[in-house]
Amino acid sequence: MRLSTFAAPLAVVLLAAAVALPPHPASAQEPAATRVGTVPAEKQPINPAQEFVGRIEAVERVSVRARITGFLQEVLFKEGDSIKEGAVLYRIEPEPFQAAVQQARGSLVRAKGVVVNATGQLGRAETLLNKQSGSIADRDKRLAEEQMAKGDELVAEANLQTANINLGYTEIKAPISGLIGRTSVTKGNVVGPDSGILTTIVSQDPMYVTIPVSQREFLQLEGDRRRAGGAGLTANLRFSDGSVYEYPGVFNFVDVSVDRATDGVLVRASVPNPKGQLIDGQLVKVSIEANKPEEKILVPQSALIADQQGVYVFIVEDGKAAVRRLKIGGASGPDAIVESGLEGGEQVIVEGVEALRPGAPVVASPAAKTPGRS
């Protein structure tokens, strides 16, 4: 009875002590799971693109010059107009050249007459020689005279041909179709071969875009072409205001030598220009893509984290955050192209990565769709 009386107060004391004990240390508790947003690492067909600065060049470009000297009688085109091949652009005063043609024609007639006379004299000399009434020396003299007369006839024919050619040059015609520039001379001036360029004509459709690329960029382009199964590369143009040109170009030429000053290679694409939007000498941005899409893994660029070892992302693996080191091969819109590090199908963490550590427990849910991502 005395023992039970003593035990009751002891039980009260032990109970109070148990209530007063501190809780377990925080280190002994499991860390709380972090809520994160994820997107799947998806394989998608893409055309990897590289962007360069290129210059528009006309396929044909002609500097129009005078080939004879004379007074300019007419200018027969409007500056900036589209012209057809063979159109008369300038007319040089033709009368002096017409007179030269007549003079050359008269010289030819005279030369032909001399040939006829020389041939007749040779025939008579041979007849006399056959009858033993003439000498061999006289026959040889007449033969030489005939040959000289025929030579003069050939010279006269050539002079007549030259005179006709010069007369034809009094009309300066367009050698190609295209747009014509401003004229450097007006009528009444004397023009000639020393007058320099009278005007310039550039063809319009198609146009070339030439792009200087470095050796490294060139090798990368060649690699893109090979990976695309030998398919050609497409050039998509963008103007300085950011607008996109609607007609893509196709590469058709790589320079045969490397520029030793820049260690670069010049590549060229042919671009349709049916509306005349492209202008000779214009600078444009050129995005080069393979014609055949490639299957690549894409992840949002917002998921990428960089440190001294390179680029990595967090993925969800068995309910925890795991690190995957990546090799990035460029961009496709808001996404990064993954060359290695992911197999496809992994849940990549894009939201809530700020406080994550490898191995931290996570609760994953689909992230909001990134604008511009399919």
Rank of each mutant, 00 (worst) to 15 (best):
356 L>Q: 03
261 A>Q: 13
196 G>P: 11
222 E>A: 12
222 E>W: 15
362 V>D: 02
143 L>Q: 11
211 I>E: 08
89 L>E: 07
254 V>L: 06
225 R>I: 06
158 A>L: 14
266 L>K: 15
227 R>A: 13
131 K>L: 05
47 N>W: 12
285 K>H: 08
298 L>S: 08
174 A>V: 03
17 A>E: 02
68 I>T: 08
88 V>R: 04
17 A>I: 05
253 F>P: 04
56 I>A: 00
52 F>M: 03
252 N>L: 05
149 A>K: 06
51 E>W: 05
351 E>L: 04
38 T>I: 15
65 R>H: 07
152 D>G: 13
146 E>W: 14
225 R>K: 15
339 E>T: 10
205 D>N: 15
173 K>A: 07
95 E>K: 15
115 V>G: 05
157 E>N: 09
174 A>C: 02
208 Y>R: 05
43 K>H: 11
265 V>G: 06
282 Q>K: 13
115 V>S: 12
230 G>K: 08
89 L>F: 12
351 E>K: 03
221 L>T: 13
52 F>V: 01
172 I>V: 04
136 I>N: 08
220 Q>T: 14
291 N>T: 13
279 I>S: 06
171 E>V: 10
316 V>M: 02
272 P>I: 04
25 P>R: 12
2 R>P: 05
264 G>E: 10
307 D>T: 02
360 A>F: 00
4 S>L: 14
13 V>R: 11
2 R>Q: 04
252 N>R: 11
308 Q>S: 13
367 A>K: 11
356 L>R: 03
44 Q>C: 00
312 Y>C: 09
281 G>A: 00
141 K>P: 01
239 F>E: 02
334 P>N: 00
299 V>G: 02
276 G>A: 06
189 N>V: 12
217 E>S: 09
71 F>L: 12
157 E>D: 08
328 I>G: 11
243 S>E: 14
29 Q>R: 15
269 A>L: 11
85 E>V: 12
200 T>S: 07
331 A>E: 10
359 G>N: 01
233 L>Y: 12
278 L>N: 08
129 L>W: 05
364 A>D: 03
373 R>A: 03
207 M>D: 04
298 L>H: 10
369 K>G: 06
231 A>Y: 08
143 L>F: 14
275 K>G: 04
191 V>L: 11
75 V>S: 05
11 A>Q: 09
286 V>C: 03
139 R>E: 06
232 G>C: 10
124 R>I: 11
153 E>C: 11
297 I>A: 04
292 K>P: 01
296 K>E: 02
273 N>T: 03
13 V>E: 10
33 A>W: 00
236 N>C: 05
327 K>N: 13
291 N>S: 15
124 R>N: 12
90 Y>A: 03
40 P>T: 05
195 S>P: 08
95 E>R: 13
84 K>T: 04
255 D>I: 06
219 L>Y: 14
207 M>K: 09
92 I>G: 02
150 K>F: 08
175 P>S: 00
329 G>E: 07
365 S>A: 15
290 A>V: 10
43 K>S: 15
